[in-house]
């Protein structure tokens, strides 16, 4: 059953606190990237069927993935406490072969869409109705493999493939628009032959509606949701700031972040 908007906001806040706790205890970066896409992950991972697959192609948002999988019971609490430490199964980018809910190790960009296209091809071939989901970053659409895979998906009529692009407008060393231009533009994906929809990437109910609408159309076209997001969403001093791709929080920053989340998400 789909949660109410209020319940979603509660979950969005709590998962943000979980993400912040992981980063604070580890002293690690990539905080902004996880806060950017956690709401998209809720909309997919909490509602997908068991037979469906999900690939986090932007593997640097691992704490968002770990947090929601922990929430869903796919990663035990004792593992969460080892995040980023020696002998962990939860490194900064997802590791291979450790959790059934993390079918592929990612961290190098541009790998998820080809893999997800392969899963969708296999599902078609075997007659399975399973959906293949992949979450990418907008910076990641710079990668050539994005376009190899996009054409492959269209040519092979993979309407069981749903791509979600976390479009926060920032990438490794600047604004995406200033680097290679808008490689996550609606028109590009439409021209290639995808069914394209945009969504508010921080409104889970909106994301679910858009997803359902796209998947209801069995027209032989692969689907993409271009989700408009804010890097660092929920922590005022991190929002839309490239440096929060990299920086860890100090003690006072952590306190400020937690307080801010509690206020904004009514916790």
């Amino acid at each position: 059953m789909v949660l109410s908007e209020k319940e979603h906001i509660n979950l969005q806040g709590n998962l943000r606190l979980k993400i912040l706790r992981l980063h604070h205890s580890a002293g690690s970066g990539h905080i902004g990237c996880s806060l950017s896409c956690i709401d998209i992950m809720i909309s997919i991972l909490r509602y997908k069927d068991a037979q469906d697959s999900f690939i986090l192609s932007k593997g640097h948002a691992a704490t968002a993935l770990y947090s929601i999988l922990n929430e869903l019971g796919d990663i035990p609490n004792e593992d969460m406490s080892t995040f980023y430490k020696n002998s962990t199964t939860l490194p900064a980018h997802p590791a291979p072969g450790k959790y059934a809910a993390i079918p592929f190790a990612t961290g190098s960009l541009g790998h998820g869409l080809p893999i997800a296209s392969g899963i969708a091809t296999a599902n078609k071939l075997s007659g399975s109705a399973a959906i293949s989901y992949v979450l990418m970053s907008d910076g990641e659409t710079n990668e050539g493999t994005t376009w190899e895979a996009a054409h492959f998906a269209v040519a092979n009529k993979l309407d069981n493939l749903l791509v979600i692009i976390d479009k926060n407008g920032l990438q490794g060393f600047g604004n995406t628009i200033d680097i290679l231009g808008d490689t996550a533009a609606v028109a590009l994906w439409q021209t290639i032959g995808f069914d394209v929809a945009t969504a508010d990437g921080h409104n889970v109910n909106n994301l679910i509606d858009v997803r359902n609408s796209l998947l209801a159309t069995h027209n032989g076209k692969p689907k993409v949701i271009i989700a408009n997001t804010i890097k660092g969403k929920g922590v005022s001093y991190m929002e839309n700031k490239m440096e929060w791709h990299y920086l860890p929080m100090n003690g006072s920053q952590y306190t400020e972040a937690v307080d801010g989340i509690k206020t904004k998400y009514n916790l």
């Binding site: 541009g110 790998h111 080809p114 893999i115 392969g118 091809t121 296999a122 190899e148």
Partner: peptide, 12 residues
Amino acid sequence: QNMIGVAAGMAY
């Protein structure tokens, strides 16, 4: 490159 990624997905 896509060919190998697709193959990995199918093998999975």
